[in-house]
Simulated assay, not measured.
Amino acid sequence: MPLETPRRASVIGDVITQMETMVVSGEWPVGTRIPPEPELVAALGVGRNSVREAVRALAHSGMLEVRQGDGTWVRAASGLGAALDRYVRRADARHVLEVRRGLEREAARLAARNRTADDLAGLTAALGRQHELAAADDRDGFVRGDLAFHRLVTAAAHNPVLTELLEHLGDALGATIALTVDEQHAVGSPLFHVHTDLVEAIRAGDAETAGRASDALLDELLALLGDPT
């Protein structure tokens, strides 16, 4: 997706739009450095000030991060994602999980309807990997694997808006899994039956059962957080 010289009517606005598109499309992935200013000026056919204003606007939105002496880096895949990241970092873990519970229920229901053969293969492999990590008592690996499992369920829903929302609630979920994983081991082995029930419901195309399994999975984490009162 090459950059193009913008229309003169709204140079800065067009530069912002094109740069946003590069981020959202994945041409400039999160965590990577964007091309330096001279390259952007040449590719867009605009002045340095227009590029600088566009970068400043996107940095203000949270999509980009300007690091003195190290260029400009992609921080979030959208302005919405950046705003959610900032808010979630200040939010109570229980509140975030309660919201995520509803979103994940719908993701599970949609996954049961929209999953592909590749989605099912990925979920099955992730479930097997979780068993291996638990058996090896690999706490950090288990947390990462659990997050990966949740992302695969969301991806199987094939709804980009839902994926975006859940992705930016992921940090809070990861923190909660990390806090509760020791408690899960303390009361017995991790409750894989819930993960297994969810995968089997998605495999069967049973949206209602998939939704209930997803609720059960998040309810376990909420219960491990304890009584909010």
Score class of each variant (00 low, 15 high):
residue 135 A to Y: 05
residue 189 S to Y: 08
residue 33 R to K: 15
residue 211 G to K: 01
residue 12 I to H: 00
residue 156 A to L: 08
residue 4 E to P: 04
residue 140 D to W: 10
residue 47 G to T: 11
residue 162 L to V: 08
residue 86 R to P: 09
residue 37 E to W: 00
residue 39 E to P: 01
residue 229 T to R: 11
residue 46 V to M: 09
residue 157 A to K: 07
residue 42 A to E: 14
residue 89 R to S: 12
residue 74 V to G: 03
residue 138 D to I: 13
residue 7 R to F: 03
residue 173 L to Y: 02
residue 17 T to E: 14
residue 78 S to G: 14
residue 12 I to K: 01
residue 189 S to K: 10
residue 47 G to Y: 02
residue 224 L to K: 06
residue 59 A to Y: 01
residue 212 R to C: 09
residue 131 H to Y: 11
residue 208 E to V: 12
residue 217 L to E: 01
residue 92 D to R: 05
residue 129 R to S: 13
residue 76 A to S: 15
residue 115 R to V: 11
residue 89 R to C: 05
residue 37 E to K: 12
residue 135 A to M: 09
residue 95 H to E: 13
residue 120 L to F: 09
residue 202 I to S: 06
residue 197 D to A: 15
residue 105 R to C: 09
residue 1 M to D: 06
residue 214 S to G: 14
residue 98 E to S: 10
residue 132 E to G: 11
residue 104 E to R: 05
residue 197 D to I: 02
residue 27 E to I: 03
residue 128 G to A: 11
residue 153 V to R: 02
residue 50 S to N: 07
residue 223 A to H: 07
residue 29 P to V: 06
residue 178 A to M: 10
residue 84 L to M: 14
residue 98 E to L: 15
residue 24 V to C: 04
residue 204 A to M: 12
residue 54 A to Q: 06
residue 175 A to W: 01
residue 52 R to S: 14
residue 164 E to C: 07
residue 155 A to Y: 10
residue 73 W to P: 05
residue 143 V to Y: 03
residue 83 A to H: 13
residue 7 R to K: 12
residue 46 V to E: 00
residue 23 V to Y: 03
residue 95 H to V: 11
residue 121 A to I: 08
residue 127 L to K: 00
residue 178 A to E: 15
residue 28 W to P: 02
residue 3 L to E: 01
residue 193 H to D: 11
residue 102 G to T: 08
residue 57 A to W: 01
residue 146 D to E: 14
residue 165 L to A: 14
residue 216 A to H: 04
residue 182 D to Q: 06
residue 6 P to N: 11
residue 43 A to Y: 04
residue 216 A to N: 10
residue 198 L to N: 04
residue 22 M to L: 10
residue 194 V to N: 02
residue 114 N to P: 05
residue 111 A to G: 09
residue 139 R to Q: 09
residue 188 G to W: 09
residue 61 S to M: 13
residue 102 G to P: 02
residue 105 R to N: 05
residue 153 V to P: 06
residue 18 Q to F: 12
residue 11 V to G: 00
residue 190 P to L: 08
residue 194 V to P: 02
residue 73 W to Y: 05
residue 114 N to I: 06
residue 49 N to I: 13
residue 83 A to R: 15
residue 176 T to Y: 03
residue 106 E to Y: 10
residue 157 A to L: 14
residue 222 L to V: 02
residue 223 A to S: 08
residue 60 H to A: 15
residue 32 T to D: 12
residue 171 D to A: 14
residue 162 L to S: 04
residue 11 V to Y: 00
residue 148 A to I: 04
residue 223 A to Y: 03
residue 56 R to W: 01
residue 136 A to W: 03
residue 96 V to R: 01
residue 1 M to P: 02
residue 60 H to F: 11
residue 200 E to M: 14
residue 158 H to L: 08
residue 18 Q to E: 12
residue 172 A to P: 00
residue 220 E to Y: 02
residue 159 N to A: 13
residue 23 V to F: 08
residue 228 P to M: 01
residue 18 Q to S: 12
residue 53 E to H: 14
residue 229 T to Q: 06
residue 66 V to Y: 08
residue 211 G to D: 01
residue 164 E to A: 14
residue 79 G to D: 04
residue 157 A to H: 08
residue 190 P to A: 10
residue 71 G to I: 14
residue 221 L to R: 03
residue 151 R to M: 13
residue 154 T to S: 12
residue 159 N to R: 06
residue 152 L to F: 11
residue 18 Q to A: 13
residue 140 D to A: 15
residue 63 M to T: 09
residue 144 R to Q: 12
residue 87 Y to C: 03
